[in-house]
């Protein structure tokens, strides 16, 4: 789990570094970033309500602030915002948000606002990368930092799968089907990307996804 959290954190650092160092966000999907902000805000509503550990609270805080920061760069920064590929980043996010919300309203563990929003965030996270993957496919010569960002982000949920298997074997009564199935879907969505990423990495070439 620690490795999963760290790859998640690194993915965000890599993206912020890319944007800040190159003053460019080309190849980065604003739609995916906005979906992630929605995911973090709806999942971490309990930030001030239930306390698990300092580590958890800090990470939640970092995830919310950093995705807000990335969105701010892409929308407001006078240089960076010019480099955003708005014409290419056209995924219809309503097709991800509404089904996730309806599914969360139907399939959840407890019928309460907090629980439904939490479940919604789990469902939405599993598909939030899709606009980014579509944008990557449309971009010829994806830059290394962007492809590393997507690779790290995909590794995060993959490593969580291992964490879940371990916890399931060692902790009695540890079951969370909604999270597991969503996490499995989330990781599966990256399979195609992983294949081409590792192929280009082995050949020492820039990544370009077949359209």
């Amino acid at each position: 789990r620690e490795a999963g959290d760290m790859t998640h954190l690194f993915s965000i650092i890599v993206l912020l570094l890319k944007i800040n160092a190159t003053k460019s966000c080309s190849g980065v999907s604003l739609k995916t970033q906005e979906l992630y902000l929605l995911v973090f805000v709806t999942r971490y509503l309990d930030l001030f309500q239930s306390y698990i550990s300092l580590y958890n609270s800090c990470m939640k805080f970092i995830f919310i602030v950093s995705s807000g920061c990335i969105i701010g760069y892409m929308r407001k920064h006078k240089v960076v915002s010019q480099t955003y590929d708005a014409e290419q980043d056209t995924f219809r996010v309503a097709f991800l948000v509404w089904p996730s919300f309806l599914l969360a309203a139907v399939i959840n563990q407890k019928l309460s606002v907090m629980e439904i929003l939490w479940t919604f965030s789990i469902y939405l996270e599993s598909v939030a990368i899709l606009p980014q993957l579509v944008l990557l496919q449309r971009t010829k010569n994806v830059d290394n930092l962007t492809s590393n960002y997507v690779f790290l982000l995909g590794s995060y949920r993959g490593l969580y799968l291992l964490n879940w298997i371990y916890r399931c074997l060692t902790e009695e009564g540890y079951r969370q089907w909604i999270v597991w199935i969503s996490g499995l879907l989330q990781t599966a969505i990256y399979c195609d990307f992983f294949y081409y990423y590792l192929k280009s990495w082995r050949k020492n070439e820039r990544l370009s996804l077949p359209s």
């Binding site: 958890n56 939640k60 995830f63 969580y160």
Partner: peptide, 10 residues
């Protein structure tokens, strides 16, 4: 509340 019922993951 049992440990596993707490949402202790991120």
């Amino acid at each position: 509340l049992k440990r596993h019922q707490v949402k202790d993951e991120l």
